[in-house]
C-alpha cells in the first residue's frame, strides 16, 4: 500500500537517432512537454535504437519520443519498436516527429508507432495527445 497516492509525472525519453543534426524541433518539443508538467529525459544526438531503449529502461520512462529529419525514419522507428520487443518492454509507447511523408506515417503506425507529428504542428496538439494517452499521470 503506497504511503501517498500522489501521481508521478509521466516520464518521456526523447532522442535523435541516427546521423541527424536537426535538434531544434526536439528541443522545442522537450521544453513544451516540460512546461506541460512532464519529466523529459533528453539523451542528445546520434543515438542508436539499442541506446534509446536501454536508456528508457534505466529511466523507467513510459514513452519514447524520436525526432528524425534524416529520411531514415522507415528503418529507425521500427528498429526501436523491435528492440522494445526484444527487451520485453512493449508497454513503452513510441511516438515522434520530424520530416515524415504522409504515406510513411500510415505505414509506421501499422508497425507499432503510436503517433507522428510533422513540421508546423502546434505544440499544444502534442501535449493534448499525451494528455489523452495519460489522463492519470505516470503512476
Amino acid at each position: 500500500m503506497p504511503v501517498d497516492t500522489a501521481v508521478r509525472p509521466v516520464r518521456i525519453l526523447v532522442a535523435k537517432v541516427g546521423l541527424d543534426g536537426h535538434d531544434r524541433g526536439v528541443k522545442v518539443v522537450a521544453r513544451a512537454l516540460r512546461d506541460a508538467g512532464y519529466e523529459v529525459i533528453y539523451t542528445g544526438l546520434r543515438q542508436t535504437p539499442e541506446m534509446v531503449v536501454d536508456a528508457a529502461l534505466q529511466e523507467d520512462a513510459q514513452v519514447i519520443g524520436l525526432s528524425i529529419h534524416s529520411g531514415a525514419h522507415m528503418t529507425l522507428f521500427p528498429a526501436v519498436v523491435q528492440e522494445l520487443k526484444r527487451r520485453k518492454a512493449t508497454d513503452i509507447i513510441v511516438f515522434g516527429g520530424g520530416i515524415i511523408p504522409e504515406d510513411d506515417i500510415a505505414a509506421l503506425k501499422k508497425r507499432g508507432v503510436a503517433e507522428l507529428f510533422t513540421p508546423g504542428t502546434p505544440l499544444q496538439d502534442i501535449v493534448d495527445w499525451l494528455r489523452k494517452r495519460f489522463p492519470r499521470g505516470g503512476s
Binding site: 508538467g37 519529466e39 529525459i41 533528453y42 539523451t43 542528445g44
Partner: peptide
Amino acid sequence: NSPFTGGAILGDRIRMQRHAL
C-alpha cells in the same frame, strides 16, 4: 523541476553517452 508545472528537462545523460550499453 519547474516550480510552476512540476515538469523538467533532465539532460545530464547527454554527457555520459559513451557509457551507454
